[in-house]
Amino acid sequence: MEIDVLELSDRSAKFILSNTTAAFANGLRRAMLADVPTLAIDDVNVYNNTSVLYDEQLALRLGLIPLVTSFDDFVPQDECTCEDGCPACVISLTLSVEATADEGRMVYSGDIVSSDPKVQPAEMNIPIIELKVNQKVVLEGVAHMGYGRDHAKWQAGVACGYKNLPIITIDGCDRCGACVNVCPRNILCLGDKFVEVSDESRLNCSLCGLCQDACEIDAISVTENESSFIFTMESDGSYTVNELIINAVNTIKRKASSMGDILSTL
């Protein structure tokens, strides 16, 4: 297995994973989307809501705000040893905003006050509700750890996907240029003798095959490398991309080892 990191920031990454199986790549993708638990507001106690949104709608919007999560400090509530909420599975956040008598204001995710300084909204400028004059929202949100497979608010990975690494072979080219004109991503260019494709632009190929169709002498062929994958992924901010990948792989590992343990006892 080899990994070649092309881009890496806190929120997004692009890397080539090679010498592995499609099953591993897909398992990694699925684990990042659905099996890494994150914190999200799950229960809301509304004390006062004179805004135009129903309480339920407000609760949904609060739930979808990504919260920065520290993986080691929390556990999903149904996996916790306590019965009805302890600091390891429950965290309380409050939102108390009132518009003045003169002008309304927008309530942003940054107005949420967390009881734990480490757990904060990942973005401070997500609009929640616009208050008109004298309107008021006072509520307490209770955040739990949960899994993306149960609700999108617990999904840490967004836009996680992969494609096979394209292999473009050019052999016997007569430099007619038909493929260059037809390529929708402009990855082919006319060289001195043949059509050429650079290593960098090769990664952009969408494997559409239009160049193959355009070539009258079958000099170009586009196939996919079955054991190499270009991964693109983004995090919603609950974790950094780096943590997300590691947590996803550890989740798979944990599943496999608990299965192995049970089988050894049989």
Partner: peptide, 16 residues
């Protein structure tokens, strides 16, 4: 198979 899967994950983590 389960232990091979664990080995694959470990390999990924090391390489990553």
């Amino acid at each position: 198979a389960a232990s091979k899967l664990i080995a694959q994950c470990d390999e990924f983590l090391t390489v990553f």
